[in-house]
Amino acid sequence: MLSTGALRAHLLAARLAGVVATSREESLRSYRLFAARDPRVLIGLDPEWAWGQRELLALMADKCGVSADPLCVSGHDVIDPERTLAALEVFAERLGAVAERGGAVLIGTGHPHRLLGFYAGLADALSTAGCEVLRPAQGHCVDITTRFGLRTYRLDYVQGVALVREAGDERAGCATGAHSHSPLPVRLALAAAAEGGGPLPDLVIGDHGWVCGAGQLGFEVIGLADTDDPALFVGEAEGVVSVAVPLDDAVRSDYYRPLTRYVLNRACLSQ
């Protein structure tokens, strides 16, 4: 069993927390765009409150531990590992609660190259506990605007985890997929579940648009977020997101394995 102290040490050693790879410039740019209500950074959230750059910086300092100093404009961002650990506790509580009642879950990621293994471990444990891991709209296509223009992507599921891949990639079931912040895939999945008369998720787990897009529609959502993803933390502050776990979301995929073990143990779902 991985202790809290051991996980804290791992978070720092793997740079999941502490000094992370995300630059201060990237984060501040995201806060400016969010304050301007740029949909690329809102990722499906429609905030109720007015969020200027100053308010966002204060929120991110509180939720993540980044510097609250507006004059700090360069270098690497910092995530307080204590805040990560505290959020993981709530994350595990929500997993345990949905498992206890055998609820339906929808899991999706916009970071398949990095986070697929983390989510797949959750999907397997929840399925074993009696939860239905949903796979609505598999194979359906969605058009997403990217910096390269409008691209068509196909919704696929790998080990119970939703992701998108370019429509021309026919290698169904393979672990590769596209990096995406868009809320359109989760909207497509939820609409298909509703139209098909099948169960709707009691809990949505993921990142980026999977969390914000579903939370905005009223579903309970939990997820992971980096310091340049303010939407999830704004959603948490406004009560749309149950928990946003602050960590670097783009380190090596195997560095997330201890988090999977830790969360499942805290949720009493260890296999």
Results as ranks from 00 to 15, higher is better:
Leu217Tyr: 01
Leu56Ala: 03
Arg114Ser: 05
Pro70Leu: 04
Met1Glu: 14
Gly197Phe: 12
Asp248Ile: 05
Thr260Tyr: 13
Gly177His: 10
Ala17Phe: 14
Ala14Gly: 12
Leu203Thr: 02
Arg154Lys: 11
Ala194Val: 11
His76Gly: 00
Gly117Met: 12
Phe91Asp: 05
Ala36Cys: 05
Glu166Ile: 15
Ala250Pro: 01
Glu166Leu: 14
Thr145Ala: 14
Ser23Ala: 02
Ala6Ile: 14
Ser182Asn: 14
Gln159Arg: 14
Leu115Ile: 02
Leu190Asn: 02
Leu106Glu: 09
Leu247Cys: 14
Ala120Val: 09
Glu170Thr: 15
Ala237Ser: 12
Leu85Arg: 11
Cys72Leu: 05
Thr152Met: 08
Asp228Asn: 07
Leu11Asn: 08
Ala175Gly: 14
Ala191Cys: 11
Ile144Ala: 10
Ser67Ala: 06
Leu85Tyr: 08
Gly213Lys: 01
Ile222Tyr: 04
Val263Arg: 15
Ala21Arg: 05
Asp254Gly: 12
His113Asp: 01
Val243Phe: 10
Thr227Cys: 07
Thr227Pro: 00
Tyr157Arg: 07
Leu126Gln: 03
Ala58Leu: 12
Val142Phe: 08
Leu59Val: 04
Asp143Gly: 04
Arg29Lys: 02
Phe148Arg: 10
His10Ile: 08
Ala35Gly: 08
Phe34Ala: 03
Leu217Phe: 08
Glu25Cys: 00
Tyr256Arg: 13
Ser3Cys: 14
Gln216Pro: 05
His208Glu: 02
Val234Phe: 13
Gly235Arg: 00
Ala35Gln: 04
Cys131Val: 03
Thr176Tyr: 14
Gly168Leu: 11
Gly65Ser: 08
Thr176Gly: 10
Leu203Cys: 00
Pro185His: 09
Val245Leu: 12
Pro258Trp: 15
Val161Pro: 02
Phe118Tyr: 12
Gly96His: 06
Ala129Asp: 05
Pro70Asp: 01
Gly18Tyr: 11
Ala17Met: 13
Gly177Ala: 14
Val41Phe: 06
Glu236Ala: 09
Gly215Leu: 07
Leu106Phe: 01
Gly168Lys: 06
Arg165Gln: 15
Asp249Met: 10
Val164Gly: 12
Ala193Pro: 04
Arg15Phe: 13
Leu71Glu: 05
Glu238His: 12
Pro136Met: 09
Ser74Asp: 03
Asp226Met: 11
Gln138Leu: 07
Asp62Cys: 07
Leu88Lys: 10
Glu132Trp: 01
Cys141Ser: 11
Glu93Leu: 11
Ile107Trp: 00
Arg8Val: 12
Gly215Ala: 02
Thr227Lys: 00
Val234Cys: 10
Val19Ser: 07
Leu12Phe: 13
Gly160His: 00
Phe233Leu: 12
Phe148Met: 07
Ala21Met: 04
Leu232Trp: 00
Arg40Met: 02
Ser23Val: 01
Leu203Val: 02
Glu82Thr: 04
Ser30Arg: 04
Ser23Gly: 04
Ile222Ala: 06
Arg24Ile: 03
Ala92Gly: 08
Glu238Asn: 14
